[in-house]
Design a protein around this nucleic acid. Sequence first.
DNA 1: GCAACGCTTCGCCTCCCGGCGAAGCGTTCC
DNA 2: GGAACGCTTCGCCGGGAGGCGAAGCGTTGC
Lengths: 230, 230
Amino acid sequence: MDGDADIASVAAVIGNPARGRMLTAMAGGRALPASELARVAQVSPSTASAHLARLTLSGLVAVERHGRYRYHRLADERVAQVIEGLSALAPSRRVRSLREANQSTAERAARSCYDHLAGAVAVALADRLCESGALDRDDLSLRDASPFAALGVDVGALAGARRPLTRSCLDWSERRPHLAGGLGAALLQALLASSWVVRRPQGRAVAVTPRGRAGLRDALGLDVVAAALH
Amino acid sequence: MDGDADIASVAAVIGNPARGRMLTAMAGGRALPASELARVAQVSPSTASAHLARLTLSGLVAVERHGRYRYHRLADERVAQVIEGLSALAPSRRVRSLREANQSTAERAARSCYDHLAGAVAVALADRLCESGALDRDDLSLRDASPFAALGVDVGALAGARRPLTRSCLDWSERRPHLAGGLGAALLQALLASSWVVRRPQGRAVAVTPRGRAGLRDALGLDVVAAALH
DNA sequence: GCAACGCTTCGCCTCCCGGCGAAGCGTTCC
DNA sequence: GGAACGCTTCGCCGGGAGGCGAAGCGTTGC
């Protein structure tokens, strides 16, 4: 028989500045090579290697080999949830450079959160979907699938999945909920597939394209620019 | 302008064996004096004092003075969520004594999770409420309030609250969801008020009284003993 | 085949974190 | 008033975690 869970052993793995930066980078949902993670963590390759070994051994991070590269990503959604929860508790760091300030602004506006969309745009999107009656205002459960069909999401295909259809995810920058779960993931997939949203080259930030701006205005009556400004 | 959140600084606070045990103890929702926390953390009073100072300074724990005692509890629900998330990721500890084994069995069966019910009983209860159509099977959102009224919960009084009415909380021992949020909290309150459920003297475990067993059978057709066995 | 490249292993060093006991401070109780 | 009690502060100590560079291993590309 086993006893209570030992939360400190997991938290200690996360609780190192370099590993924390690595996990934050991976929280965008992309798989990243060790060299890139060493860069964001601001440590030497050898140090990064030791950290990544510890992250994989503890089961927080999964690795895929592609030739001489090793791509690292969060092991599963539960890890992403913990990272997100910690972000909500953590004090925000002071930025040191203009580059960081731009990055930070972009991430506040729109970013990927593991496999779904987060940031001001995601919160505004969830709000608009509540107003239009597609989602429940209390817990973001699905009320009407048709607006999602208009965005290119096949809601029917998600019905049989083991994963919960909708989940409310607290946005750490906005302090308000946005849409996660199977539907949240499918929505981001659809937005990326139609190029309404594109991933920025590095970091978690994403950008809404002009076409996406027009599409979201036509489909939902949502003004993304206004949403990003507040 | 501030930058990305520093998750490592928070995780490092949680990521110490003694502090982890303290937080796990407080995750039951009770406020505990420093001496009791020193006992569960298995450290001297002076060491415990240092840990508690760090926990309060980092904002994870709130303190109330009552005479010469200082009662500590988790600062808010977000902290409880992170603790619960980490529990789900953490490997479970090996037990060392019969006492620990009993405690562990009891907690798996039924325990308080911050302000709501968790464990096998909570999962079975959520299942039963889904079957009877009171809760949505996908995300545990409210479908029919009448079964809750039968349990002594005034759902109407919760309607205006800022807090989400229902939230699905992943049970770390059962790996399946149970009911949290305002309704989950109100349900535990009602069960405690009617003495259908009582807190055990120490730890997070709670017990369903004979009266509660009969009440849950009559009100919902739920067999608590069978639920606890599997 | 050899150079370039990504990553890991190894050895070494430093520093800080977490532990304790003794003593001090504030509260309670007789 | 004084003893008992809960908690904090202080000083001290030991161990382990985290950092680096050099060297080694496997893959890629010319």
